[in-house]
Design a protein around this nucleic acid. Structure first.
Lengths: 336, 336
DNA sequence: TGTCAGTAGATAAACGTTTTACCCCAGAAA
DNA sequence: TTTCTGGGGTAAAACGTTTATCTACTGACA
């Protein structure tokens, strides 16, 4: 059906081996004449090599697998864009899979992608099960990069210093006079050792001699609903608080909605700080104060390092850590 | 390196042909005994067939190509989620490519995906070049679905009745007393015949005996910047208007920002209506009145129809048209 | 006994590449 | 004349499947 290398070779009057060599840029044993002819004919027929055949024989399939919690989360969408753009720059393509942070799906996804002979894998998020996933990936001997789930001693990680980002956010609240600060996170379980953002919160509180009230800690998923529902719960209890630090912007947006429905005002009654700097968060009125993570650049960098590993280039960096920075906008008020 | 069908066959003491048949569910000429043994062993070795080899020989590669303007646009991100979810339900996987509506990239993308032997292609957006792209896809004999670029006489389309949606939005403004209504669209050129949204605007105006002032028509891209800049331009001219109908929500959000910076209020001074109902648009204060397009369902449906075509099932529908509906929220005021 | 039908499975070709080893020829050197 | 060398290729194996055809055996029946 499609044009194959055979068609080109027949047309050019040479063997398919010669065509293959020429089109792969190996001119070592080919006359200029033949080379030019092959290239011209391949062009005329607009021949494109069958990637499956190539991948099968050479074990090099220019496809990388992206394992992502949820592409409809704007933060991950942005990161995906960075990844696909950078991959394409090097002739690689991407297949994408959403896991919704479900471990079963993560594992089958890894296996599936392996059966597609992907050249490499990027594992995004899913911190709590990352170790196990990585174990599987290693056992399949697939080059990989792990994004946003760094823990001590790991390598092949691209991550943001969440502790620091969260610390900055909470300290910002404290410096503006807030003392009772609630925290809503996306992790299913509270106080998990890997929740660097929560630890940043706790450390900031401790460093300023403020107690952490466990009744002001809520957890759910990294989405609007969690922000909305958990804020309603917080508001429903009789424990006073003047600010909420959120695990991400989506949670903050949900919280915002809940606060508004409670006829309270942001930031007059309750201050709010998000995390991620999703690009729509600037549209909120008042504009959301948040911690910026450079999603696009993170994606780009993850692919860059992955390609180094796939193509076995030396590669200087074991890991890459991005430094988040607080974006002060309008959702944090002064308290005296 | 990885477990192959040979390993399974050796272990089970049968030929690879038998293993292949059993694992593909064809038990016609296999004893129960052998069948069970093969299945057990394949399981024990956690064998997974090499998709490249399978795809190469059987010309069935469970991969579909998604050609999308920009995955970081939340509307497309949502749609992509619908597509990947539905594909996965049927054992298909997705490779994704962003085109930024650039024709060159669309064409190379189609060719590339063809060389990956994708089973089918979904072409999203890119209305102005859709015909040409589809021509190419057809010449490559790849089953496809075209999303959001329906024109008379086409088939394999999933689309939303943009004319109707836009008409509703503008009529809503008119019924609330607005007469000078600006329109900002994303198309590069104005009055393109394929801009159904613009036509809906014009028709609604005409049906209510309102003139269309060409100085109130602006076009750019479907993004924040366009909304922002074009609104600034509109505001800078001395032509009065009381409302803006926007080509999509992103444009509306940009417009919103511009209006705010101009120290004007939405909806008191200027009313605003968007298009898409991006799920963050509800977070705006005031909440954006917009036209809802069911992005996720559109994605699901596109894949469903594509799979019918790939697997040559009868398939009742030639096209699928979704009906948009106006979501009345808080950005449109009454004028007397 | 010979044959026919059915069962259970094996053999081998094919898919479209890449890659390694080999071949043939012309001219140079010995 | 023989031997070597390098240029310009070719032939064939290999990758891991699917699938059409082929075979060996077992009973049953005429």
């Amino acid at each position: 059906m499609a044009i194959t290398i055979k068609d080109v070779s027949r047309e050019a009057g040479v063997s398919i081996a010669t065509v293959s060599k020429v089109l792969n840029g190996d001119f070592s044993k080919v006359s200029d004449d033949t080379r030019a002819r092959i290239q011209r004919i391949a062009d005329e027929l607009s021949y494109r090599p069958n990637m499956l055949a190539r991948g099968l024989v050479s074990q090099k399939f220019n496809m990388i697998g992206l394992i992502i919690p949820d592409i409809s989360n704007p933060y991950y969408a942005e990161m995906s864009r960075g990844m696909t753009d950078e991959a394409l720059r090097f002739g690689y393509h991407a297949m994408i899979n959403n896991t919704d942070e479900m471990h079963e799906r993560e594992l089958t996804c890894i296996r599936t992608m392996a059966s597609f002979n992907v050249g490499g894998l990027v594992l995004v998020g899913n911190v709590n099960t990352a170790q196990e996933n990585i174990q599987l990936i290693k056992s399949l001997r697939i080059p990989y990069m792990s994004v946003e789930n760094y823990q001590d001693g790991m390598e092949n990680c691209v991550y943001v210093d969440d502790f620091r980002g969260s610390y900055q956010a909470v300290e910002h609240l404290i410096k503006r006079g807030h003392k009772e600060i609630a925290y809503i996170t996306g992790y299913g379980t509270l106080h998990a050792p890997y929740d660097q953002r929560l630890q940043g919160y706790e450390q900031a509180m401790a460093d300023h001699d403020l107690p952490v009230n466990p009744y002001l800690l809520e957890c759910g998923g990294y989405n609007l609903e969690t922000g909305y529902k958990k804020t309603l719960q917080l508001l429903g209890r009789n424990i006073p608080f003047t600010a909420i630090a959120c695990g991400n912007d989506l949670i903050a947006l949900g919280a915002f909605q809940a606060i508004r429905e409670h006829k309270l005002s942001v930031p007059r009654d309750i201050s709010l700080v998000g995390y991620d700097d999703v690009y729509l968060s600037v549209m909120l009125e008042p504009r959301l104060t948040t911690v910026r993570q450079p999603a696009y650049e993170i994606g780009v960098h993850a692919i860059r390092l992955l390609l180094e590993r796939i193509e076995k280039k030396p590669g200087t960096e074991k890991n890459k850590c991005f430094v988040p920075n607080l974006i002060e906008r309008d959702t944090v008020s002064f308290r005296i």
